[in-house]
């Protein structure tokens, strides 16, 4: 059976050092502080002043945090406004595409792919 066509996705928009990013809402477990759990580091750059973090679960059911400056909101984005990135952009594996907010691209992040401990290893 083929996958259902997704027409609209819920994207969490967040800010790191003045740059907006987005991530799939279903990947985010909660918003927390960056120091309350293991961090994935700063793959998108270091936050300038924020102490917040997007907390998500690895497939090994371990909570990890991506430090951010702040959450800007959740937005329903139609598929037509999503774009894959051209190969010449040489984006990191965790940048999986962009949302064209009018003419301004907002990079979309696969939170799981920011985890440097992938593939999942034992955290026991």
């Amino acid at each position: 059976m083929s996958e259902p066509v997704v027409e609209v996705v819920e994207i969490v928009l967040f800010d790191i050092a003045g740059t907006r990013y987005g991530a799939d809402m279903t990947q985010v477990r909660r918003i927390g502080r960056h120091d309350e759990t293991e961090s994935v580091g700063a793959p998108l750059g270091k936050p300038t002043e924020g102490r917040r973090a997007l907390i998500f679960m690895t497939s090994g059911h371990v909570e990890v945090a991506l430090a951010i400056d702040g959450v800007l909101g959740v937005q329903s984005i139609p598929r037509d406004e999503l774009r894959r990135l051209p190969p010449a952009a040489g984006a990191s594996p965790f940048i999986i595409g962009a949302w064209l907010d009018r003419d301004q691209p907002v990079l979309l992040v696969d939170l799981h792919a920011t985890n440097p401990f992938r593939p999942e290893v034992s955290h026991a």
């Binding site: 750059g45 952009a89 990191s92 064209l100 990079l107």
Partner: peptide
């Protein structure tokens, strides 16, 4: 308006939207 790309060479300033297309 340009969006910077993390972890790319310095000559690659970022991406822009151009006629509905994302372009480095």
């Amino acid at each position: 308006p340009m969006t910077p790309l993390p972890r790319t060479p310095s000559f690659l300033l970022g991406v822009v939207g151009n006629r509905g297309q994302v372009m480095p």
